[in-house]
Design a protein around this nucleic acid. Sequence first.
DNA 1: CTAGTCCCTATAGCGGCTATAAGGTCAAGC
DNA 2: GCTTGACCTTATAGCCGCTATAGGGACTAG
Lengths: 150, 150
Amino acid sequence: MPFKIGELAKATDTQAVTIRFYEKEGLLRQPERTGAGYRLYSEEDVERLHFIRRCRQHGMNLAEIRELLAFRDSPAPSCGWIGELVERHIAKVEEQIASLETLKAHLQALRGSCSGENGHCGIIDSLAHGAPCPCCEGLHCRLERRPPQE
Amino acid sequence: MPFKIGELAKATDTQAVTIRFYEKEGLLRQPERTGAGYRLYSEEDVERLHFIRRCRQHGMNLAEIRELLAFRDSPAPSCGWIGELVERHIAKVEEQIASLETLKAHLQALRGSCSGENGHCGIIDSLAHGAPCPCCEGLHCRLERRPPQE
DNA sequence: CTAGTCCCTATAGCGGCTATAAGGTCAAGC
DNA sequence: GCTTGACCTTATAGCCGCTATAGGGACTAG
């Protein structure tokens, strides 16, 4: 009945390396091993990894996920703080959206600042001398730290 | 008239380490040095660094900035591709916004899924068994890769 | 002459993976 | 039995754009 890492990977749409990474990070338990040293998983692991991946899809970081897993592993009677965690999360997402909207407006203005004529680029000029982008005074909005895999 | 790295840092709201990093990356030239080895900068460097920081604020990565600087350093007659770069950039920002809006909706649904009663958390349940967040099938939306400095 | 502020280089770390190297294991087909 | 190929293992380095740390030198004011 137990299965190897490739199957867990397929079932959860996660790369095997990532699974081993989660194990090293303590998000997944150390699994049983076959005689040859292959990791062996069960349905329970599928569920746990699903949980982790859902959390990642919701933009939670590994520290937050660790907290949630700890709760899941030993449920306390009150879970109000989980709602609060989600709440805080929503607030962060809203901030990001607002920041990106401002950025977009600024980029649109930038795009319009060059006529493409007389061997001189207004965009370059604006970038050198124009007003700073108001969206992210402290360089908060780091887009594209990694490009979406294409 | 030339000034040291601290002054350049202050003038452009950039950390000295970051300036040295840009130099290593080839975005800033190797500056003159004092007898003691201190870097010496001019107004031109302020302008160039300003340019770089503006680009960063607009969410451009260092590779894109390198392209723009190359153009700035040796202006060609036609600069249509710069407009296109900005255009592509706007498209990416719009994608991000859309992705975040979907995420937000999903988080709000999640928040509503727990009554906080009978020692059992609906949010945890939804995360383990609910539908995946549609916003980022391939985990495209990596929020918070670095938290905004606080 | 000391304290404090600036500057220098070099190296490691952040998050969440991804990629690469170099090899072991197992089943199927010849 | 022997090869081929798909799978598994560990270990290490790299991605990006910095940030932090260690360990030191230079310069100024009191």
